[in-house]
Nucleic acid binder design. Structure first.
Length: 260
DNA sequence: ATGTCGTGCTGCGCACGA
């Protein structure tokens, strides 16, 4: 089973890019972020005609996450628990049933947090604390769990082209990295690190400053796995070639292949 | 040396977020 994560930076602007990639890569599950539309605006028909079940948690203009699954959804949970006042659409979780049992996964769009310090950074850290609390609850199920998304976290200097340029950025500050490490201490495995781990492999290149041709990227899209999912992880790949296409997202898909 | 993109309204240029 192939499970992908991709921040598409507007599903309406990216419908062609996403369907083209789906037709080639044929993932069983795709977790999308930054769909930038309300649920009614999501072009579900393009995905349903390719055999995907579609779940969305949309929002006008900003944020928004979606799930595409070849397997029917047994359960869908909308939003990250822990703050009833939070109106930003950044978390969507579902469960499917496979021959080997249930698989739970989520599409995560973790707040960017810039500028730091400031209220946006406070929101990022609070959101990470809520994710920690929720992951702790989910791990009690002792089932394959894949938390896939744009974490807006650069884990180490090896995940950027120039760590000095990112030193004061919300994606790379020590507090951000500590909060991500705390998630991993729960027993979550970061998929790329586990089976690949090569330095300077990126999932995001800014539109500005010719970042893509200069390979000025960062690795911020991650799959976090429960032990039951990590045990079944075979490989991870980053489909960086799609960044070279017409009207690309600034992120590229990252795909985990599992024996599930 | 510089260099972007997507959304939506204050609307056909600008503010905002990334």
């Amino acid at each position: 089973m192939d499970i992908a994560s991709w921040n598409v930076n507007s599903i309406k602007a990216r419908t062609h890019a996403v369907t083209q990639w789906l037709d080639e890569a044929k993932p069983d599950i795709a977790c999308l972020q930054e769909i930038k539309t309300v649920d009614e605006g999501f072009p579900s028909e393009f995905f349903e005609e390719r055999g995907y079940n579609v779940a969305t948690h949309g929002q006008k203009s900003y944020n928004g996450v979606a799930l595409l699954s070849k397997y029917p959804f047994e359960e869908i949970n909308v939003g990250l628990p822990g703050d009833d006042e939070d109106e930003q659409a950044r978390y969507l979780e579902a469960v499917i049933s496979t021959d080997t049992g249930p698989v739970r996964f989520a599409s995560i769009y973790l707040p960017n947090g810039n500028p730091a310090p400031g209220p946006k950074y406070d929101y990022k850290l609070a959101w990470m604390e809520r994710l920690y609390a929720h992951a702790k609850v989910l791990l009690v199920h002792e089932e394959p769990l894949i938390l896939a998304g744009d974490y807006n976290v650069i884990q180490s200097a090896d995940d950027t082209y120039d760590a000095a340029l990112w030193a004061d950025d919300a994606l790379f500050l020590p507090q951000t990295r500590a909060a991500f490490q705390k998630l991993k201490w729960l027993g979550l495995t970061e998929a790329y690190e586990q089976v690949d781990g090569r330095p300077h492999q990126y999932t995001f290149w800014d539109y500005q400053g010719g970042a893509w041709p200069k390979n000025h990227g960062i690795r911020i899209d991650h799959l976090l796995l429960s032990g039951q999912a990590a045990d079944k992880l075979k490989s991870v790949r980053i489909d960086a070639h799609v960044r070279d296409r017409e009207k690309p997202s600034d992120h590229v898909p990252i795909i985990g292949t599992f024996d599930l």
